[in-house]
Design a protein around this nucleic acid. Structure first.
Lengths: 222, 222
DNA sequence: CAAAAAATACGTGGCAGCACGTAGGCATAC
DNA sequence: GTATGCCTACGTGCTGCCACGTATTTTTTG
C-alpha cells in the first residue's frame, strides 16, 4: 500500500467540520474535480476517528481547526498516531503564529484558509496527497515571520498548552479575575499567576489581549 | 410591488459572504428548494450594494456579519436606508449579546448561526420573506438574556460603535497600550481612555477581555 | 439653525496584572 | 534511578487599566 497518491488516480477524502454549510460548500467546490472524491464526512473529531476505522481508503483528511469538543489539533495528533500514512490538511479562518505552529507540530501537511477559492483548495489537496505540503499565501507569510522570531529564540520549542493551563485560560476568557479563578479551582492566586505567565510565554503574547485571541481561535469558549 | 413574498411564489435571494466555501455551501443547501432562488452573490458589502441596484427583484439578503471592509452591520444599515422593502437575514458564527443587539438595531429580520442545517436555513428564509422574523435557538436564548439585562438598564439603547472607537479597538486588539495608541493617533492618553471606557459600555464587557472578543467576532483584525 | 452625537481632554485614585526570581512535590518517561 | 515536565506556591514592586466625574469643541443630522 503506497503512502502517497499517484498522479492520475483518485484521491479519497474525509471532510471534518462542524458547520454543515462549510461541508456542503467544499463538496460542491470539489464536485467538478473527478480525481478528488469525498468518501466520508464528520461533524466532530470523535466521529472522524470512527470513520477512519471503517474507511481505510482515505488518503487525505481535510479538517477544520475550531470545533467544539475535540479540537482540530487534537484530531490531527490522533490521526498522526494511528494512521501515519493519512495526510492532514488543516482548514482555518485564522493564521496566527501559535496556531500555524501547532498544526505543523501536530504533523499537518498543509494549511488552507477558509477564504480559499475552489482552485486553491483542489491544488492544496493534490499537493498534500502527493506527499508535498501546501500553505495559503498568508499562512506562508506567517511562517516566514515566525521563522525570524524562531531564529532569535534559537528553535525555542514552545511546548503545547497543558490541560491545567487551558482550564485557566478558559476562565480568563470568561472575564474572571485571577482571584476568582483561584477560588474556583481551589488553588492559590499565585499559582494562577504562574500559569498565566506561562500562557503568555507559550502564546507569545504581551498581555491578556493575545491570550484571548488564542482562546477564541482555538475555540476554548463554548 | 408587494413588500413580502406570497406563499407559493419564488423568493429571490442575494448572498453576501467573503468565503467562497460558505457561498457554495449555501447555494448547494438551497438547490433542492425550488422556491428559493439565489439570483446574485457578492463577496463584500460594496459589491452587494451594486448588485442590489441591478437586481430589483431581490427580496431577501442573506449576509455574513464578519467581512473585511464594510461590516455586515454597516451593510444591513445601508440596505435598510435604501431598500426598506428588502429583508435582511444575518448569518454569523457567534451569538453574543452585543452582536445580536446590533443586528436588530440595524433592522435585521433574522439571525441564523452558521451551524444551521439545510432545513433551518430554508425555514429562516421563508419566515423573513413572509415578513416575520427568525432566530436560531441559541440566538433566541441570547435575546432572552439580554432582555433581562435590558430590563435593568431600562431600555438602555446601546449606540453603535463609532469609527474612531473602532480604530482604537483595533489598536487595543493589536496589543498596544493606551499610551502607544495615543501617540500613534496624536491624541491624549486621556482621550484613548475615554474611548476605551465607552467601548466597554457599548460592548457590555467588564474588561479588555470582552473587548477583544468583540473585535475578533467582528473581524476587526486583518 | 438647532439639536444630537462624536471626538477631544483633564484629575484622582485603587486594584489587578505582570515582571522577575525562586522552589518543593509529584508523576511519568527514558 | 534520574531526568523531565507539570502543578503548585511565595514576595516585591511597578505600571497600566479602569471607575467616576466633568467639560469643551467639532461634526453630523434633522
Amino acid at each position: 500500500m503506497s503512502a502517497f497518491a499517484v498522479p492520475g488516480t483518485v484521491i479519497n477524502l474525509l471532510l471534518v467540520d462542524d458547520h454543515p454549510m462549510i461541508v456542503e460548500g467544499i463538496r460542491q467546490m470539489l464536485l467538478p474535480e473527478p480525481d478528488l472524491q469525498v468518501v466520508a464526512q464528520a461533524n466532530g473529531g470523535e466521529q472522524a476517528l470512527e470513520l477512519l476505522e471503517t474507511h481505510p481508503h482515505v488518503q487525505v483528511v481535510l479538517l477544520d481547526l475550531s470545533m467544539p469538543g475535540m479540537s482540530g489539533i487534537e484530531l490531527a495528533r490522533a490521526i498522526r498516531a494511528n494512521w501515519p500514512d493519512v495526510r492532514v490538511l488543516a482548514l482555518s479562518m485564522f493564521h496566527d503564529h501559535a496556531t500555524v505552529a501547532e498544526v505543523l507540530e501536530a504533523g499537518g501537511a498543509g494549511y488552507v484558509l477558509k477564504t480559499a477559492t475552489c482552485i486553491e483548495l483542489s491544488t492544496a489537496i493534490r499537493q498534500v496527497a502527493a506527499g508535498r505540503t501546501y500553505f495559503s499565501q498568508d499562512v506562508a507569510d506567517t511562517l516566514l515571520e515566525s521563522q525570524q522570531i524562531a531564529g532569535d529564540l534559537k528553535a525555542a520549542r514552545l511546548p503545547a498548552i497543558t490541560r491545567r493551563e487551558r482550564e485557566i485560560l478558559q476562565l480568563v476568557a470568561r472575564e474572571h479575575s485571577n482571584l476568582e479563578i483561584a477560588e474556583a479551582l481551589f488553588i492559590s492566586e499565585r499559582t494562577v499567576e504562574t500559569h498565566r505567565r506561562n500562557l503568555l510565554a507559550k502564546t507569545n503574547s504581551k498581555s491578556v489581549v493575545g491570550l484571548i485571541q488564542y482562546a477564541i481561535r482555538h475555540n476554548l469558549l463554548a
